[in-house]
Nucleic acid binder design. Sequence first.
DNA 1: CCACGATTTAAAACAACCCA
DNA 2: TGGGTTGTTTTAAATCGTGG
Length: 742
Amino acid sequence: MWFEGLGADAADAAATGGSDNAGTVVAGSNAVGAAAEGTDAVGAAADDPDALMVLMLQGLPPKVQMLSILQLMVLMLQGPPQKVPMLSVLQLMFLMLQGLPPKVPMLSVLQLMTLMLQGLPTKVPMLSVLQLMVLMLPLVSERHVCGPSCGLVCSSRWFSRPSRLDARAFLKAIQPASASIYIGSYSQQNHSGDRLREAAHCPLCVGRFRAMSSHLRRAHGVKNLHERKLLSNLAFRRVNVRDHACPVDGCSYKKGRLDRHILRGHVELTEEDRRARLRLVRRQCTLHMIRQLGLKQASPPLVSDIHVEEPAGKGRPPSRCRPAGKGRAPSRCRPPSRCRPAGKGRPPSPAWKARTRETKATQARPHPRTDRSFPSSCFPCQYRWPAFCGASGGFTWADVRTTNYQNAVSKANRVHVFLGYMSEGGRQKENWLFLDDVERSQWWPAELAKANKAVTTVNTYLKNVHQFMKYFMETPPEPCGLTRSQQAGVARALKSCLRDLGREVVVHQISVKEAKVSRAITQQHLTACKQLAARRIPELLDMLEDEDLPPVRHLFYGYAAAFVSSIYGHRTGVIANMRVEELEVARSAFPEGSHGVVINVREHKMNRAFGMAQIYLTRDEFVWLERWMRLRAPLEPSDDRVFTTGTPANGKTLLKFLRLAWGEMGLPRRPTFTDIRTSVATHARNCHSPEVRHKLSHFMCHDTCTADRFYALHLSRDQSKDMRELFEAACRPHPCEPPASN
DNA sequence: CCACGATTTAAAACAACCCA
DNA sequence: TGGGTTGTTTTAAATCGTGG
């Protein structure tokens, strides 16, 4: 099974990592030290994460011991390797759990991480999420028995409802124990298999909540991310108190494992008393950290006042403590109606949701987008890998949610749906024989089409499932009753469906392109947009300088986005991700008196290939942004995006504002950023020489060949006429040539 | 065998929608 | 209204096929 490939030491480390290193993430203690005991060099760097990272980059000696998963996570959090996409980290973790495949030379985890940091994974094909799913599927077998070193928590629950698979339940059912390691205090550990985080007491009021961060933000107005994180960690007992002095009178214990010391050592106290003392140390530790945060004049300003409970200025929470529970802060909570305690009016369970959907689907005529006749799923990553959720540093959780994460969720879901479809009718699931039904698999596209899926969507689904089958064939799960030829048969059937679908897909794509042409924005409208925006933006800024009204601000965002977009056709992300810092860099690079300013935006889709997206603004235009920056500062937004909306899904909101402004300008239709981009690209292609086009495309972060391929259909009438003349000229008989004999 | 164009794959982005 | 999910499109990168 899964853990067989994992060496005994490493398995032990993984199994005990949860307890031994619990809490290290929160306060960043020296858990890495334990990881690195293998070599002197690493040992020396153990207390200094930066030094360790440097060491890793330099290449490590081969003796380094395997790290436990938790230790790896700690490493990640302490020095998130910015180049590595989130999923590959998860994939690496799964690889580790499964034991490395025999063909891969055995590397220590640190060496693997070194490779990843050096950017090699582009050459090393990473496992796709689907492949991971396949790896996970065998665990679902009833026969799996958790041994002492396995620690897997799984059941065949999810397979009992094949027609309506619930990926949440599925993932919950098969989660490996290592993924359920709590990054929290020892007492928090829980091997019950239920990964759903329990509701906890809010540190600022009496309510119990599961979505603590949301509660803190909405109910208490805790806008500062760090403050919210500290409070949330306190609520969920994720505070590292190991190195603190024992609060029990007369006890001289000072360092090491305070959590274990209190819970196991002070047998003279009742269990409740022991826990209460631990709670208090955690609370005081948090107060201390919040106080430190307050001293740094954090922005947005802190709102919780629990840190004023204690006189400021002490370096460390005192070892003496008041009885537990009495130090609770005065509540700043809004009336109880806003603070809905968990348990009352709790959101419906996924199972309930599934039932509701089912009912709805049967009652109403399915809408192409809203049809829920196929099961939905998701990766409950926020519960399975809690340490990543609030990780600060190189990557943001929001990034993962919007791209890799969403796509992974979709793909996994499609495979579930397919497996569910194939196993309908009480077929035996454990041996996978239900897949050996070529005819049924060939009906799958028709089933999807019946559910109003577009042909391209059906195509995507088929590709996902085909990809799944390919991986299945390469690494058949245990137990698998399918012979090689049966597996190949299923894959062939899927492939042939894909081929059949090919023609329809092309027709569909052409119609999509036609629709795109019909949405194209004329040069006149683009110019009008630019001129109107240039006139309106200063007016809006004047209004904002008088008074900050959100509707005006939103309109300003919309006009600014429309202005930039209508000139350069940049992606939404380029405008949405423009950062204050980047504006400041632009300003300092082009001092007063220069004719304009270039803003380099770092974070957008193609930045790996094209470097940074660039926006050139004249002095006058840049002044708008400078005025906005002055207006923006007092608003104290939670992120550093220039056009901040206070939400991570910035582009989505920006489109709304763009359309708002577009409407106000009296321009036709409601274009998206992509429509504008397509139009700009098309006009650029039509008006300029290849050389100029290449320059323009690069500015838009487009490949010319890509642009040609996707915008080639957008020939104007005159161009088409020219084209025909060229063809006719080529085929016109030459006057000197003799006429054809027949 | 290699270069180069064509085709396929899959990551990433986007937009609409749902729900609490 | 914001956060989350799903369906669809866009497009870079990988792979395949073919002619020289």
